[in-house]
């Protein structure tokens, strides 16, 4: 796996990703091409809700995952950020989806679209 960017550069990129995207997922694999069941489950939830979301594949650079796990203080992936806030991994996102909390959080924080 290549290591194009440093730990610090990835920390800055993460801040940028989550600031510029309403829903951002760091996963094992690309969007709709996950290579891990937990990452697949998270994408399934957002596909089902039919909401726009972005994915970054942690396997594209070996320095990304350590920077991500330090940033969110969370040891595993996938990791989901909504409105710039760390929401959790597969378990929490699934639990929130089943309780309806996830839908509420998305609607409440959805960017206002200019007509």
């Amino acid at each position: 796996m290549n290591q194009e960017r440093s730990h610090e550069e990835w920390t800055e990129q993460i801040k940028k990703d989550i600031a510029e995207n309403h829903i951002f997922v760091y996963a094992k694999g690309e969007k709709n091409m996950p290579v891990c069941g937990f990452s697949a489950r998270v994408m399934q939830v957002f596909n089902h809700l039919d909401v726009p979301y972005e994915v970054r594949n942690i396997f594209t650079d070996a320095n990304m995952r350590p920077a991500l796990c330090a940033f969110s203080n969370w040891p595993t992936t996938p990791q989901v950020f909504i409105n710039g806030e760390f929401v959790g991994g597969c378990d929490i996102v699934t639990e929130m989806f089943e309780s309806g909390e996830l839908q509420q959080m998305i609607e409440k924080s959805a960017p206002q679209t200019q007509d």
Binding site: N73, W74, P75, V87, G88, G89, D91, I92, E95, M96
Partner: peptide
Amino acid sequence: SRVQQHQMVY
């Protein structure tokens, strides 16, 4: 929060 609870276990 759920995240904090999980972090305590982690």
